[in-house]
Amino acid sequence: MAETREPAKRQFVNFSFFKVDPVWRRLPHEERQAGKQEFIRAIEEFSGKVIVVSYSTIGIRGDCDFMLWRIAYELELFQEQMSKALASGLGKYLTIPYSYLSMTKRSIYVDHHIHEGQDSRRLQINPGKSKYIFVYPFEKTREWYLLTKAARQGMMDEHIEIGHKYPSVKLNTTYSFGLDDQEFVVAFETDYPQDFLDLVMHLREAEGSRYTKRDTPIFTCIMKSLKETLDTLGG
């Protein structure tokens, strides 16, 4: 009798970018330290249920200070975790100028382009393997979707071939159709920012780039522990 396999579970993914109110930096040192500890405890309370990788953007962007990359199998966990974090001493001084929601999904264009440590079906993400991450929302034009599957596949094959020339850069593509304003969220992990820069320049020359509608804002982030990330806030 043939074994019945359950469908692989897909993950929800969230990239939340935070900005701290400058008023927080003028609070007494002890109050700032206590607020950071409360925030850390609120995030770590969901350990085992929500994967969280933290990144600092201090000194890199002016409109946000740090980012949390969160992955879970239940959407409600994002809400519960964030509600508790924002109720902390630090959380009361935070705004979230950018937040992108997406899900994992098997690509219709590529099954053979698999990075080391990445699930072959692209349904599970293994994050936080590199020092830097580059994140941005992405949309294709409507004209792209009116092309034949063969035409799109040909352009994606070129895209994939270019990506293979930069093995130090790992791409995580997640899908937002119907969940958020963008169609995709792309997150490139690498230890070599110069390789990512060269990759992006190379991709601009690909045929498929003419069908890009939106690929900004782009966030350059440096991975740190959550404590180290919060310490970069100046408190």
Rank of each mutant, 00 (worst) to 15 (best):
K9I: 09
R10C: 09
Q11E: 08
F12E: 02
V13H: 00
V13T: 09
N14D: 11
F15Q: 06
F15P: 00
F17C: 13
F17P: 01
F17K: 02
F18S: 00
D21I: 07
D21W: 11
D21A: 14
V23S: 15
R25K: 10
R26Q: 13
R26I: 12
L27Y: 03
P28F: 11
P28A: 13
E30Y: 05
E30L: 08
E31N: 08
E31Y: 12
Q33W: 02
A34L: 09
G35F: 00
K36F: 01
Q37T: 02
E38I: 06
E38W: 01
E38Q: 07
F39V: 05
F39D: 00
A42P: 09
A42Y: 01
I43T: 04
E44N: 10
E45W: 08
E45D: 11
S47T: 08
S47A: 13
G48C: 12
K49N: 09
V53M: 07
S54D: 03
S54V: 04
S54I: 02
S54W: 04
S56A: 07
S56H: 11
T57D: 13
I58K: 11
I58Q: 15
G59L: 15
R61L: 10
R61D: 09
G62I: 14
D63C: 15
D63M: 08
C64A: 08
C64E: 09
D65M: 06
F66C: 03
W69E: 12
W69Q: 06
R70Y: 06
R70N: 05
I71L: 04
I71T: 04
